[in-house]
Design a protein around this nucleic acid. Structure first.
Lengths: 214, 214, 214, 214
DNA sequence: AATGAATGAGTTTTCATTCAT
DNA sequence: AATGAATGAAAACTCATTCAT
């Protein structure tokens, strides 16, 4: 678990200080990378944000790349958890709207993670294409099959499961990734943007999925 | 209109060669900036892409920043055109699904512009916040009012017009901004992603907007 | 011919300034590398020695490695010229003693080149092993065959041609590579070290090669 | 004798553990310094090679420089032993060819020591010039006088004793210092390089020294 | 209008050494 | 005696921008 540490490789168990400093650095790096992108961020910024000297930061991580890579790796897991939680045995519509709500909560609670990921994908995913074509695609394929079954059995409307998933990702992550625009456009109403989005998106996807009467 | 030119102060009207080179540079800069972000791009890359020498490029533009600023400025106009085209006198549902389709076409035909803009918003819109709080917000407020009227008159379902617009932006731009992910997940089906998205999104927003029977 | 230049790759003919500066840099680099070794030398030292700023030096060469590589490449040619000049049709003893003298002259006139090469070989030839196993070995094999023929025909004494060549290299290059020691040991006599060495080595190799009477 | 120890000032006699660790460090340092040169070697490399932590290594030695200095000091003694052993009362030719063989054995058995020394001399002997101008020169002067006497008495041919010594050093140390080149050129024959060199060099110096008949 | 040349201010590391325990 | 932690000083580049022609 600590194999990513420059120094920790040598010692089996990380010390308390290692855990603390590593955490500090990752927190600072997330802040900086998610705001300025990989190339736009400097180790100096991250070190300052973390309250460390530059060489001290590099004592814990081998390189700027290594910090970024670790962040992305951790991130993808968290990011996919809600989709994993989609229960094939649950009620289709509530499973999916529940998924929407959980993704929206991630956007509200972890906007920096969302932006870090968005930044990466935007640039063609040079550092995470492997994860996308591997674990991410596998999971999506699997859940798309579940949704497809629901469609075929008539429990939800006929829908392209992949594009359904894309639209859920797009609409929920929008509130994290494009928050500066959303908040600017909403003005005073920005305060309640997540509640309003929850209502709106629940309706949107419920209407989309309700099997047509008849 | 040529105020952005470094040398333009000296001559009222740009020569043909000025127009050509400026166009070349902007085209190259769009390519580069949209792929690597502002900080991740170098003037050298842009100059090479444009087939110019670095100093020659800087003969036409004062700075890297200036090229970027001009690109964004031009961009926003194009970006908002479809929304402007939303006709208060048209049929509400087809006006809105028409808007969706036009936005999706922009994502298909101008993905680099979309990514450039997304990059900027992601980073907190440091260079375009003025435009967002100004012209963009004004236009959105105006169209939201139109949609709101449609809702109140019962011609479309009751819907939060701002979040409706956000969801249209999010879902359509997703196919440009997150294309690397979309295409990787879809695999072979990626080829028809825009046609499939058009179908899916038309259904999605049509269902959302159809006034409930009764 | 100018392909090694960072900038020159773009232009067919090097300008006068390029030729001058490139020459200056190579001269300075030879001085510095031959004294401190590759790792012990800094670009700053070379730039200062050449009277340039560090970035200016890097305008002409892509990297420290590139300068070093070019020096070694040029060097090996010069270094092997005397061996190439060994004439199979000449008088065996005078051909070889002539070779000794020419090598000794190289040590006298180009001691820095000799030391640069020695430094490289000493560290296991990490950057020139290819040249050694290729062109250098080919040439040596070829001349060893010539010497071998001379031995077999009885025109010189029976001798292992490879070790003969090694001993010529060793004894002549010693006056360049180990000059600090040679001069320190000789004291006042150091002034005439090359003349004395020429006499001594001529005798040494003449005695070695004279076919035994019989 | 333990004055070089950082901590030795505190204790008169080194403990067993001090002796062991010091030995380990010197062994490791020889390996590393002889391969990469002084500036090209890092304390980390040496510490790793010695199986110690960096600060622990610096507990035993004050600095990188101190380790290097001690190595060179020890080295010179070993290096000059064979020359010291040259017996004025022995048979001149066998004394000298014996010296050649012993030096060649040192090259075979202690190539790293040879390269460490060569590295130092190549760079102008900045750290051992004192030793060279002192003990080394004294010894060489002394043995040169012996050889000179042998020449004058007609027991060996007339020869410049200094250049004779230089040529012995050069030819024998060549097999350690330039081994990468020697082995590459010899190819398969490299395996027997030391035996072949012993034969060749014995002949070379015997022919050189045999008093001319008459 | 164009370009070869030059540079100051970064930016990512590296490394000998010190500190605290 | 040993080591995890920390750092100042360097070192190899990079890059937007300027200068001279």
């Amino acid at each position: 678990m600590w194999g990513f540490l420059a120094r920790a490789a040598e010692s089996k168990t990380p010390t308390r200080i290692q855990r603390e400093k590593t955490g500090l650095i990752l927190k600072a790096a997330l802040e900086v990378f998610s705001t300025y992108g990989f190339r736009g961020s400097t180790i100096d910024q991250i070190a300052t944000e973390a309250g460390l000297s530059k060489p001290n930061l590099l004592y814990y991580f081998d390189s700027k790349e290594a910090i970024h890579a670790l962040l992305l790796e951790h991130l993808l897991d968290t990011w996919l958890d809600p989709l994993r939680a989609l229960d094939p045995k649950g009620d289709p519509v509530s499973e999916i709207t529940g998924y929407v709500i959980r993704k929206l909560e991630l956007s509200r609670d972890y906007p920096r993670e969302s932006r870090l990921f968005a930044n990466e994908i935007l640039q063609g995913a040079p550092r995470v294409m492997g994860l996308i074509k591997g674990p991410l695609k596998t999971l999506v394929d699997n859940r798309a099959a579940v949704i497809s079954d629901w469609s075929k059995s008539g429990r939800i409307a006929d829908v392209d499961p992949y594009h359904l998933i894309f639209s859920i990702w797009a609409t929920t992550q929008h509130y994290a990734d494009f928050d500066s625009q959303v908040s600017a456009v909403l003005g005073d109403a920005a305060e309640r943007r997540f509640e309003a989005a929850a209502d709106y998106l629940t309706t949107l996807f419920t209407k989309m999925l309700l099997p047509s009467a008849g």
